[in-house]
């Protein structure tokens, strides 16, 4: 891909350049340094903010920071309470982490498309994709983690036999076991794939549109990029919210014993 970008010129070259990751290594054992760096940075930001708020947390009158953190926590907790009916120490913090982290990933999309790559370019870094959620690795890493939790909790709550029974005998009863199994496996595998691709697709498309707008003459750009950015505020929040809610719903399904 890197070589392609070098070869292409003009608009195509510009777009490809923006959508190429900063990459080291070859084949599977290569790393997207930009994705890793920005997601770790944003994760650190999330941790730093909430840790500060948690350290100053009092039951009295909350400060501005604590207030904001509590607002998010209450929102997440409400979602968890609405969808999840079991008891789990993991699920609420998991939902909070997913919501905040994905939101921060997506928020990187709000920076003008050329600023961070431009700065990186001055520092000698050729390629930089600043939005981690436009990298399939990031979205799949999260959704596969969630998938592992779904499997883990399914087995833990229903027992290996119960889970196997559910895979084989539902929804059509024991006479159609192979068909049931096929259906269930597809259903389970569809969960992480749809989670990852939904987030990736939305943000990738959004980023692409920003890049396309950036190709237009400067006097048209604000006219288009402003409404798109405003609309994007909704999209980035919504996508973070969807990822969180679906995670809660999937885990709650894993907790339900039939």
């Amino acid at each position: 891909m890197a070589t392609e970008a070098h070869a292409a010129e003009g608009a195509t070259g510009y777009i490809i350049h923006h959508l190429t990751s900063l990459r080291v290594g070859e084949g599977f054992w290569s790393l997207h340094l930009d994705t890793l760096f920005f997601s770790a940075l944003l994760g650190g930001l999330f941790i730093w903010f909430f840790k500060n708020a948690a350290e100053k947390a009092t039951a009295g009158v909350p400060g501005l920071m604590q207030n904001f953190a509590e607002m998010i926590i209450e929102f997440v907790d409400q979602q968890v309470k609405d969808s999840f009916h079991g008891h789990s120490k993991l699920i609420a913090p998991l939902a909070l982490t997913i919501f905040c982290w994905v939101f921060l990933w997506n928020f990187m999309d709000m920076f003008p498309v050329d600023i961070l790559p431009g700065i990186a370019g001055l520092m000698g870094i050729e390629y930089l994709r600043v939005v981690p959620s436009t990298d399939l690795n990031a979205t799949f890493a999260m959704s596969i983690s969630v998938f592992c939790l779904i499997i883990f909790y399914s087995i833990k709550i229903k027992g290996p036999i119960g889970f196997a029974k559910e895979l084989m005998f539902q929804p059509f009863g024991p006479w159609l076991t192979p068909f049931n199994l096929l259906l269930k496996v597809v259903e389970e595998i569809a969960k992480p794939i749809s989670l990852a691709l939904r987030l990736f697709g939305n943000l990738y498309a959004g980023e692409l549109i920003f890049i396309l707008i950036a190709l237009l003459p400067w006097y048209i750009q604000p006219l288009l990029s402003f409404p798109w950015a405003v609309f994007h505020i909704l999209i980035i929040t919504l996508q973070a919210f969807i990822f969180m809610v679906l995670t809660i719903v999937y885990l709650s399904m894993a907790h339900e014993d039939h």
């Binding site: 290594g25 054992w29 290569s30 790393l31 997207h32 890793l36 690795n137 890493a141 999260m142 596969i144």
Partner: peptide, 8 residues
Amino acid sequence: INATLIGQ
């Protein structure tokens, strides 16, 4: 898809 997935 590459090792970034594992890092993430």
